[in-house]
C-alpha cells in the first residue's frame, strides 16, 4: 500500500470567493488579535457591543467567532465595521520571512522556549 500520485486538485475547478466577507476584512487572519479602543455604548448593535467587551484584552478573531457562536466569515464583517469606525484595532500576526517563506528564526526560538516551559 502506498500513496497514489497527485490527484486532480479541486482548486482547478473552483475559485474561492470570500463568502459574505466584505472588502478589507479578508486581511483579518483567524489569529489576528483584536483590541477594543473604546467601551460599548448604549444603542450599539449587540454583537458590536459584545465584541468590544470581549476585546478589553486582546482576543483572536477565531475566539470571538467561537464565543459569539457565529461563523468566522460573519465575524470578519462585524470586525471590519468596528475597524472602520475606529472602535477596535488589529494586531496582525508577524508575516513570514519573505526570502525563506518560513517564520523568522527569532520567532521560532521564542515558540520553542514557550513550548518547553509548558
Amino acid at each position: 500500500m502506498s500513496r497514489p500520485g497527485r490527484d486532480d486538485s479541486p482548486e482547478r475547478l473552483y475559485t474561492l470567493t470570500g463568502g459574505r466577507s466584505s472588502a478589507g476584512s479578508d486581511a483579518l487572519d483567524l489569529v489576528t488579535l483584536m483590541v477594543a479602543d473604546r467601551a460599548p455604548a448604549p444603542g450599539m448593535q449587540s454583537e458590536h457591543a459584545a465584541i468590544l467587551r470581549m476585546c478589553e484584552r486582546p482576543t483572536a478573531v477565531v475566539e470571538i467567532a467561537a464565543e459569539l457562536r457565529l461563523p468566522v466569515s460573519i465575524v470578519r464583517v462585524l470586525l471590519s465595521d468596528l475597524l472602520d469606525a475606529g472602535h477596535v484595532s488589529a494586531r496582525h500576526p508577524r508575516p513570514a520571512d519573505p526570502t525563506h517563506r518560513l517564520p523568522a528564526p527569532d520567532l521560532l526560538e521564542q515558540v520553542l522556549v514557550g513550548l518547553r516551559n509548558l
Binding site: L16, T17, G19, A66, E67, R69
Partner: peptide, 19 residues
C-alpha cells in the same frame, strides 16, 4: 492535552464558485 482553554469549536462558511 496542551491547550490552556477547553477546545472551542467554530465554523467557516465558504462560497465555492464554479469556474
Amino acid at each position: 492535552s496542551v491547550s490552556e482553554i477547553r477546545p472551542l469549536n467554530t465554523e467557516e462558511t465558504m462560497t465555492l464558485a464554479g469556474e
